[in-house]
Design a binder for these strands. Structure first.
Lengths: 293, 293
DNA sequence: CACATAATGTTAGTTTTACTTACATATTGA
DNA sequence: TCAATATGTAAGTAAAACTAACATTATGTG
């Protein structure tokens, strides 16, 4: 059973003893001098003794007050240090983000400069990999994933609708008849070098296409993938939103879409509970970028 | 410019780390478990990291939380010690009270047992002296004085009306004619040994009575003074309230009253500002005693 | 294995504390 | 003596802390 003066009154008193001045102490504590004066008064009433008295332009602690002040300073120094240290080490942790290579290439990269400009103090560790990493075990703060939104045990937030689209340049279709998914083996493939296509492999399999056995493959990276497809180098699978413009303007033709009935798209996936500051800032930035589109 | 988590949340967290149990920590802090839970949550949100997590029937700090907890414990130990020590030394100071001997004898003594019973922890240093001591210089907490209530620069509270009354046993008046104050020299005097009569000396002088030169004096103490007067040993000056009963019942006769036009009486006189706890308790007790009469 | 027990988790509403604003008073030095 | 710079104080407001009530989760036991 503790009976105790309020800690804020102790903190106020400590600052007053240090500054020997109510107003300066108040400035340090980001409050008015009146607030400090009242805290001191309350503390003195609690103890039932005078701890400080006015002395010219300022205040002087009594002997008892001085003694108390010294101990309080020691104590608050420890707290301040501990808090500051924890805060610094927390803030110094880079933000760990994992996402699909296509998302990095088509969405994040063009915007990352803006983020770095707005948050120069936040360091990002970016894992661009189509292999789904375990957020918990590998301690990632955020994953941006393509899927139907079902990641039980995680915070999931839909970022944008998208589906896998099999596209090709119109000129490559001249003289070739593609009616069934299995027909696409008639054309060469352009693959993203980082993308393991894990998400749509089973669709291909379902239609009797053994992706691995397909011979005519070109492996490229990032924008080059799309550029090569536009250029007629071959057929490719890309998330619909990165090619919708091309399709609309006739540069590409959509052969098939890998919709599975459910709505799919890109999602923000992160752990429940406390959201670290850098993640919070990053999420907010992503949402604002999306809203700006 | 400080940006800081609330000290109460830190104190709560410290207790939680120590107990590894919200409910126990809450009991120590005299609050509900819900209050502690919210403080912890706020602290974690402030830092943006998880500091503790549920673990079976209780909570376990994370590594960062453990570290913080250790530092906080150190710190709060210092505060607790400093506060406790100051409180103890403050409370251990005896209550310094000064008052007139007659007040001690007739009012305080019969009641002091009750006070000691109700506040066995408060030690009283009692100065029974009719010489007015300097409250400030001699550091008395309280004076109980006879007068008109004019003690500028002090807190003054009227305790009871009273005036100096010159009394005598009726049998002593047989064959003696006392009409003028100066006549009282015809009779012997009974004085309180501790009472210097400073307050009414000037009244006597005014009526041409040189108290010091009066030969037939008996010096007694406390109740004995009144007993001697009742017994017809001589004439005496006593505050009216200690003899009013005797007068009403015919045991004593009031020859003169030393009223100076102003209302006089006993007053509580103490310093402005902070009222120490023991004084506060004593004052409250005195008031309750007075009210009970 | 269901159930009693003992925790933590969470929210709405209330109480308490802390704070600001505004004005009064006090001290110093030019 | 006045301007500048403090502290002192009270009323009202804003913020923080807390309680009560109920929900959920974990543990051990008959």
């Amino acid at each position: 059973m503790r009976d105790f003066p309020s800690l804020s009154s102790l903190r106020a008193f400590e600052a007053v003893v240090r500054h020997k001045n109510l107003s300066h102490a108040a400035k340090e504590l980001n409050v008015t001098h009146a607030a400090v004066a009242q805290q001191i008064k309350r503390l003195e009433e609690w103890f039932g003794i005078t701890l400080s008295r006015r002395e010219g332009r300022g205040v002087a602690p009594t002997e008892a007050g001085q003694q108390l002040g010294i101990e309080l300073s020691k104590s608050f120094d420890i707290i301040d240090d501990a808090v500051k240290e924890l805060k610094i080490t927390t803030d110094a942790q880079p933000l760990r983000v994992t996402m699909t290579p296509t998302f990095v290439n088509f969405w994040l990269m063009p915007r990352l400069g803006d983020f770095r400009e707005k948050h120069p103090d936040i360091e990002i560790l970016l894992n661009a990999n189509s292999v789904v990493v375990d957020l918990r075990r590998e301690d990632y703060d955020l994953a941006i994933r393509f899927g139907n939104g079902s990641w039980p045990g995680f915070e999931v937030e839909k970022l944008m609708r998208s589906y896998a689209s099999i596209v090709v340049a119109p000129k490559l279709l001249e003289g070739v008849s593609i009616k069934d998914p299995s027909d696409i083996t008639k054309l060469p493939w352009v693959c993203d070098i980082d993308d393991h296509h894990s998400e749509w492999n089973h669709w291909l399999k379902h239609h009797g296409i053994e992706f691995a056995k397909h011979k005519a493959k070109i492996h490229l990276s990032g924008y080059l993938t799309r550029d090569a497809i536009r250029d007629g180098q071959g057929i490719g699978i890309l998330p619909s939103n990165w090619v919708s413009e091309d399709i609309k303007e006739g540069r590409l033709v959509e052969l098939f879409s890998l919709t599975s009935g459910e709505e799919t798209g890109y999602h923000l996936v992160y752990k429940h509970g406390i959201v670290p500051h850098h993640l919070s800032a990053f999420l907010k930035w992503i949402r604002s970028q999306k809203a700006a589109e």
